[in-house]
Design a protein around this nucleic acid. Structure first.
Lengths: 178, 178
DNA sequence: AGATTTATGTCAATATAGTTGACGTAAATA
DNA sequence: TATTTACGTCAACTATATTGACATAAATCT
């Protein structure tokens, strides 16, 4: 039980709360809060340089990850109203970080693409957040690494998982080509 | 590779993104976003019944988990300004969900406690969010359960982990007594 | 061809949650 | 006594979201 070193110490603390009791579930609730709090903080400084906020970040991120995304698909991902999306999207379009082209099969749709400028910012932001995950994966014992992503996937509403999985597959395919 | 069943399918998908490459870190970023999006959604309906929002939830949660919390400690946890805290805290005080007592050792401090009413709501809200974790833990292979909390802990800023660990220990102690 | 639905844009009002800045007060401390 | 600390408060502002109503062009149905 008494291992030396801070890393071992917090690992003990973490393992201690892993059991499936109510009390320990509560501790996971708090860990999730703190983890997300720090996670989203990473990108904020960089965004401030461009006069953008987190809402712009989310839009830019998903447009960059899934070029050709429609408005409807983006609304579905973000779970906000079109009026709310429109404000930040308009700013991203006007500032030249995102561009919209009429859909080829359905010309009512506006397909969203990152501009080179937008792609660069999206990658810079993504690098910040990826860095946290890469560091975490290094810190974690190899056996726990797959578990982390299984855990996150299981945290998603069960009726949403298929959609998320499709999104990830689509983003991966988009990332392979260019 | 070809296992039957949806559970096996998404487990494969999750395991696939677990490697420590940049591309896969990006997928973890998105999984984290989706997981948190669904996680915070759970409590919103219940909060609406009381005319409260997420800000109230966070305050009530931490006051309930750590009775006798000072304003300064709460500000440190939430990372917001005192003006922003004051608005929601005042509402919780006036509505009788939280009460403040002058500190005994330092009478400038206001120690925050949940009222019976506040404690009940806090537990109802916590039950909703705990339920998600308990369900996830059931879905996950036992070996992955400890890994989930290790992962969340590792996602916290390293210079914040000691504080969070102290907070968890304190909350646990507070939860044991009553 | 005409009617309807769909995808999207937009105007307006409002709510919630946060910010910065300035100032006040009571209690602890040097 | 002077200063610092813990907290409260007024004001103006920003960011992000909401609901509701209405507009338009393109696709689709009958």
């Amino acid at each position: 039980m008494v291992e030396p070193g801070a890393a071992a110490a917090w690992r003990n603390a973490a393992a201690e709360v892993a059991a499936t009791s109510d009390e320990n579930a509560l501790e996971l609730v708090e860990l999730f809060f703190f983890a997300y709090r720090d996670f989203v903080g990473d990108a904020d400084r960089l965004l401030g340089n461009y006069g953008f906020g987190r809402a712009h970040h989310r839009v830019l991120h998903f447009v960059n990850r899934r070029p050709g995304l429609t408005i409807a698909a983006l609304l579905d991902i973000l779970r906000i109203t079109k009026q709310s999306l429109n404000r930040v999207l308009k700013q991203l379009l006007e500032a030249g970080f995102v561009e919209a082209r009429a859909g080829v099969v359905d010309r009512r749709q506006r397909l969203l693409f990152p501009t080179p400028l937008g792609g660069t910012l999206a990658r810079d932001l993504a690098a910040l957040q990826s860095a946290r995950f890469l560091k975490v994966m290094e810190e974690l014992p190899p056996a726990a690494r797959g578990a982390a992503s299984e855990f996150l996937f299981a945290m998603i509403d069960s009726d949403e998982r298929e959609r998320v999985r499709a999104h990830l597959a689509c983003a991966k395919a988009a990332g392979d080509a260019p």
